Each structure stands twice: as C-alpha cells, then as structure tokens.
Simulated scan of single mutants.
Amino acid sequence: MDYQQLAQQIKLWATELGFQKVGICDVDLSEHEAELQKWLDAGFHGEMDWMARHGMLRARPNELLPGTIRVISVRMDYLPQQAAFSANLSRRDHAYISRYALGRDYHKLVRNQLKKLGQKIEQQVDALGYRPFVDSAPILERPLAQKAGLGWTGKHSLILDKDAGSWFFLGELLVDIPLPVDEPQVNQCGKCQACITSCPTNAIIEDGVVDARRCISYLTIEFDGVIDEEFRHAIGNRIYGCDDCQLVCPWNRFAPLSEQDDFQRREVLKNPDLVSLFLWSEETFLDHMQGSAIRRIGHIQWLRNISIAMGNADYSPEIVDALERRKGINDMLDIHIQWALEQQLNQIPTPGTIDTKQQRLIRIVQKGLPRDA
C-alpha cells in the first residue's frame, strides 16, 4: 500500500464530502497531559463533570479506540451568509446567538461525512479500524487539529488558520493505518491581545487558558443554574453563546462564508426580538428549534438567558409585561426574572448606554472585521 498516495486521496475525498481542510497526525498528546490536569485541578471546567470524569483519556486517542495510530482531523466552515454581527450586537432589544448555532446542529452532519470518509478508505485497504468523533467522546480535538496542521491554538484557546480564521467546526477520524503525518502551523498571534481584552467577563485568564466558569458560552449553554449577578450585565443580549473573542480577531478578516445550507440562519431567528422569543411556549420552542443545537438547553434555560438580556435592554413596557407573565413557572427562572424587572424599572444601566467593551466590539465589526454579509 502506498500510504503517501492514499493520504492525498483521503484529502481529495474529504474535500468532495464538504470539508475545507484535512490534516493527519499521530496520537501522541503526552505534552498536553500536564496542562490538562492543571486546568482540571483549578476547576476551570466548572460543572462539566464529564471533563474530569474521563481524566487523561482525553489525551490518549489510542486508549479511546485501541489500535489507533493516526488521527485524520478535518475542518468544516460554518460562518453563515447573513451573519448580521453588528445588527444583533447593537440592538439591545434583540438577541445575539452564537453564529455556529443559527442553523442546524453540526454534530450529525460532520459525523456522517466523516463516516463516509472512513468507508471510502476502507474500500482501499485490506482491513481498517476506524471511528469518527465530533464532540462525541473525550478527546482533545484542538491539540490534534494543531498537530495535524489545521491551524495553531489562539490565545482564546480556539484553533486559528491564517487563511480561514476560526469560524469552523472540527472533527476527527481515528484510524489504525500508518498514514504520513502533516506539519503543524506556526503560531502567528504575536503580541495581539484583542481576544483577551475584549472578553466581556475576563474569562481568558492567560494565553490559551479559559476559565469556563466565567465564559458566557459556558454560562448560557452548559450551566443550568442561577447565573451570578457578577456576570449578568456583561452577558448583555447574548442569549446563547458568545463570539466576542472571534469577532475581534484580525485573522477572521479572511474567514470564508459557509456554503452549507444547514449552517445558514434559520427563518425564525432572522428577527430575534427578545419579547417574541421570550413568549414562545415550550411547544413552540421545541418546534422552532427542531434540529438545532439550542434545543438541548431546554425551554427554562432559554427563558433564563433571555430574561437576563431583557434586564439589560432599554426600558420597555412590553418587556416588563412579558417578564411579569412568566413569573411563577420555575424558582430558578424567577430569580432572573426578578433581577430583570429591577433593571428595567430602575434603568440600570442608564438607558441607551453600552459598556465600553461592547462599544469597542461594535465599532470593530462595523469596520468590516470580520466579514459581515
């Protein structure tokens, strides 16, 4: 078997299957074990107990799938054609949803395409042990992507590529054949601190290290409890995830727009008015979010996140009325509704004001960084 030729063929197949970049690496991630353990020991994973539960298995792909000697790492771009960054950030009565979640959930699509890639490889070799992963197992996908040459780890901990920025999903295909490996990219962040200084909650505590407990994406998606008041104003109108560290990154000037229909903004999110979203019944929420990553947080957490955004919006009788109508559904939700009502009635912050980080972010986006179709 000419594995060099097979590797080239794999990259061609992957492109045909909708991936924008492919790299291959070995399974040795031992250099990341100490930093992973330090991150876990510090409690930076918050209440994501599954991260600690699997321990160092995350850094040992060959234990996850015995016999694995190579990882095929893939990238699929997701930036939607109608990203509307500045419009949603500047309109405080509208919701901001992380751009990866505007369309359909990516897990099934990326995994299915990886499975097809594995089947194509299987047809070319005598025997193949393989398994696709897309956030579906304890595996350090970003270090693998870096090692496979898909990019370098930015100071926000995301993978950056000089030609594509960071608006892409990652996936892995573990295989047991000795494919030639690719060279890692050189880190090109330099002295830039834009992602660190622009984080609304100061969650990036040092280069490449994020304290999830302070991260808006964690707080609005992974965390299902009472969000500390310390973070509520900083959350602003971000009701699902946060893109700020990507929005300010200079490398995202070069981010291509996704051609995948599944990743385009769904119709019900094209005018994300806070009051309208807040008044969705649970049945409406589940129906509108069918096939969306947002659906998994559930209706109560959806309402919790929106209530915080409503508390940060300019005073509106419609907002106050909507908040009052939702009281008494859930004790945890009531805590956030009461806070939001207080902010509305007391107008804290002052009507029309936006915190300085938000103002800076909007100015950057309006200048065309990153591309906003």
Rank of each mutant, 00 (worst) to 15 (best):
M1V: 12
Q5S: 13
L6T: 00
L6Q: 02
Q9S: 05
E16A: 13
G18Y: 00
K21D: 07
K21R: 15
E31K: 14
K38Y: 05
F44E: 03
G67L: 06
M76R: 05
Q81N: 09
Q81M: 08
A83L: 04
N88C: 08
N88R: 14
R99L: 12
R104V: 15
R104D: 15
L114R: 02
Q119S: 11
V134K: 08
R142H: 09
L144V: 10
L150C: 02
L150I: 01
G154L: 04
K155I: 06
L170S: 01
L170D: 00
V175M: 00
Q188W: 03
I196A: 03
I196S: 03
C199R: 04
A203M: 06
I204G: 01
V209Q: 07
A212Q: 09
D224I: 10
G225T: 09
V226G: 01
I227A: 07
I239L: 04
D243T: 04
C245V: 08
L269K: 14
D273K: 07
E282M: 09
R304Q: 08
A313I: 07
V320A: 15
E324A: 13
G328H: 04
M332P: 05
I337D: 04
L341Y: 11
P349T: 12
P351C: 11
D355N: 14
Q359V: 14
A373D: 15
